[in-house]
């Protein structure tokens, strides 16, 4: 019986994910699952933020559902989503042939490098909330940005030593390109043919509508303000509780504290989408999250994972 499913990236969204996973697994990456909290980008996953700090080598790849409450368009825009997938690769230190590896991964998902014009166009990355920055490019395929390529220079206010290379693939956009689809909701999700076909819209359209309503109109701002303060407090409490007992000691609560930092960041994004944060306040909220991120980064550097 012939399968009614074609997992080639050009017919299947999940096929694209599986191909990337296999490719980076073959490069010795730890293949992680998405972090079980709401984040704005794959970078927030502790496997990137925290692991990018300290001297220990680290190679990981994972899919991260990313939430950008403000980008919701009630399912009406063919390119914009408030929830989408990033495929994240982090390699510390970055291997000398990271660009070649990246190009090979494009080849693996069916981008023929003899037919397509791939370009590395300057794009320096900065995350004010994470106190992080790096230099790199946006990677263009025939004029379309399909990935971000960054050499982390600083995370949580600390110099990266050694430097980690980070690749972020915008999966929906890449899939639209590979599948030749103009509207994200038309993507073939499972690679099913005929009746077996499940579209991206069938999986996510309703969610986009519901969450757009939630993000822009209904999200309980009083609760969110409370949650922000609570998360901020909890983060500090956990950092305090896990603090090293002496100069030589290790920190014992860096990761639970960092979870609260992530939470504060997402709550802030929701409040921002609800339009209840003024321009001046906005800056101060970003600063508060950054302070948490810095404190968590400092704590992580005092853990075994951070090389202490």
């Amino acid at each position: 019986m012939s399968s009614a499913v074609d997992l080639a990236p050009r017919t299947s969204f999940q096929g694209l994910i599986l191909t990337l996973q296999n490719f980076w697994a073959a490069q010795g990456c730890v293949i992680l699952q998405p972090y079980d909290m709401e984040v704005g980008a794959g970078t927030f996953h502790p496997a990137t933020t925290l692991r990018a700090l300290g001297p220990k080598p680290w190679k990981a790849a994972y899919v991260q559902p990313s939430r950008r409450p403000k980008d919701g368009r009630y399912g009406e825009n063919p390119n914009r989503l408030q929830h989408y997938y990033q495929f994240q690769v982090i390699l510390k230190p970055n291997p000398p042939n990271l660009q070649e590896l990246y190009l090979a991964s494009l080849d693996a998902i069916g981008v023929d490098l003899k037919l397509h014009d791939i370009r590395f166009v300057e794009d320096d990355w900065e995350s004010p909330t994470l106190g992080a920055w790096g230099l790199g490019w946006e990677c263009w395929c025939d004029g379309m940005e399909v990935s971000q390529f960054t050499y982390f220079q600083q995370v949580a206010g600390f110099e990266c030593a050694p430097v980690a290379g980070e690749l972020t693939y915008g999966l929906e956009r890449l899939a639209m390109y590979v599948q030749g689809v103009e509207n994200v909701y038309d993507l073939n999700f499972n690679g099913g043919l005929g009746d077996e076909r499940v579209s991206y819209g069938e999986v996510f359209l309703q969610a986009e509508q519901e969450y757009s309503r939630h993000n822009f109109e209904v999200a309980d701002t009083a609760m969110l303000f409370r949650q922000f303060t609570d998360a901020e407090k909890a983060c500090r409490t956990y950092l305090e509780a896990g603090a090293p007992e002496d100069e030589a000691g290790r920190h014992r609560m860096a990761q639970p504290a960092y979870d609260q930092c992530i939470k504060a960041s997402h709550v802030f994004n929701l409040l921002d989408a609800r339009g209840v944060i003024s321009v001046t306040e906005r800056q101060s909220y970003i600063l508060r999250v950054r302070e948490l991120a810095k404190a968590c980064g400092a704590a992580w550097l005092r853990t075994a994972g951070g090389g202490a």
């Binding site: 001297p55 230190p93 970055n94 291997p95 000398p96 320096d124 790096g134 230099l135 790199g136 050499y151 220079q153 990266c160 030593a161 050694p162 430097v163 290379g165």
Partner: peptide
């Protein structure tokens, strides 16, 4: 704007260049 990269960037004083 310049940057550090690769294994050499583990040590202070590593070479900086615009990209590797």
């Amino acid at each position: 704007k310049s940057m550090r990269w690769g294994a050499a960037s583990a040590k202070p004083g590593a070479l900086r260049w615009v990209r590797p």
